[in-house]
Amino acid sequence: MKFSQETLLRLYYDMFRIRKTQLRIESLYHLDEMKTPIHLCIGQEAIAVGVCANLNKYDYISSSHRGHGHYLAKGGDLKKLIAELYCRETGCSKGHGGSMHLVDTSIGHMGSSSIVGGGIPTGTGMALAIHMKKQNCVSVVFFGDGAADEGVLYESINFAIIKKLPVIYIYENNQFSVCSRVSARQAGEVVFHAVAPEYMFTKTVDGNTVLEVYEAAREAVLRARNGQGPSFIECKTYRVRGHAGAGSDAKLGYRSAEEIGFWESKCPVTVFCEELLKKGLITQNEIQDMEQDIDLEIDEAFRFAQESPLPKGEHILQYLFSE
């Protein structure tokens, strides 16, 4: 597949922006001003970006506890994300959600669940709504290998196949659920061993290569838009940081520093940047300009968050029910 320079630079920019946002969150986390559990997606940016680059504003996504990347890649408001981490009234969930519960309905992000696997059926249900309303949209469900252990995955896929729903399951296999390896929890080599390809478009890709993710997602999205039903894409990747919080967890000893190092060398952002440089599609100066733009935007978002008011205790009952 041929990519325009504009597309390539856009993909790079989006990954770089998510990475830099994560790094800033990580570097400030020890100050304990963001009083919410964080799950960084450092090393997994290519999946969110490669998939969301195929979507438009009206398509839905479902995300999880590790959802900053999905939110930003889909076009979620950065200021509101950071404000949510600071538990401010101006946060995307008005301080009711925190890091694991992001939302931006203006771009089809209808809220992320921190119950592992919880977004799989709800994302499938959004596809049912699309199907029943005869909209030309798709619903993308991002979930991890831990979520793949849950029964709702089977239940949802089965239903999506029966109803030919426009849903795309993006399985981010980062190989761990907390400290537990996927090989200790999954019977098959690939998780859709149980779903024959004749029932659903399935594909395994290198989740650290944004163009591979992009191409597979593109096919899946086209199929969904054409009424050809659900798809399942496994993106093989790796969680280089600890499960939650900031920094590496190499000292815990459940995996080796070499293994982490190997995957760090396959960094989706750096490797892609080097390729672009090698092909002369980007220059060091352009990268610096990009970085400057991104830094300014992140500065601004943090300032916005820190200066925003905190929700008042007396409003605790607000939003229990919709009128």
Partner: peptide
């Protein structure tokens, strides 16, 4: 049968699907 339909037993999955459909405006 599009608007009044039988479901697989899968109660948790189907409840989530109903929740998602509601979020999607149904």
């Amino acid at each position: 049968k599009k608007r009044v339909f039988d479901t697989p037993l899968a109660e948790n999955g189907l409840t989530g699907i109903a929740v998602g459909a509601a979020i999607g405006g149904m």
